[in-house]
């Protein structure tokens, strides 16, 4: 899945995360988080896993975290990527039933 155009998902409210994606020749992730000191590595790992699962190999991903749960980070990131493309999301590939 490629980032084809600018897209955004989420909010800057508490417990949420705002994700902005845009086309870029290489994959670049910019994370700011209120809990970066404690959970920064875990969040980066979660972001990497989610992008890998979506097949995103290039694009600029800007993430502003407001203490979101893992499930929220994944959902907002997937929403932003899906909005940046014309490909429908395949839920069968997104999680375990």
């Amino acid at each position: 899945m490629d980032i084809e155009r600018d897209a955004i998902a989420g909010t800057l409210e508490s417990s949420d995360v705002l994700v902005r994606v845009s086309p870029h020749p290489v994959l670049e992730v910019d994370l700011t988080s209120a809990v970066e000191a404690q959970y920064g590595d875990d969040i980066r790992q979660l972001i990497d896993d989610t992008l890998r699962r979506l097949g995103v190999q290039a694009g600029r991903i800007v993430i502003e975290d407001r203490g979101a749960l893992d499930c929220t980070v994944r959902a907002r990131l997937e929403a932003a990527v899906a909005r940046s493309t014309d490909q429908p999301l395949d839920y069968a590939a997104l999680g375990e039933a």
């Binding site: 998902a9 749960l69 893992d70 499930c71 994944r74 959902a75 907002r76 899906a82 999301l89 997104l94």
Partner: peptide, 16 residues
């Protein structure tokens, strides 16, 4: 609608 569907999908599978 799309974003809410994804949030619900992942929340369903969350330990919470």
């Amino acid at each position: 609608k799309d974003s809410a569907r994804l949030l619900a999908f992942h929340a369903l599978q969350s330990p919470l």
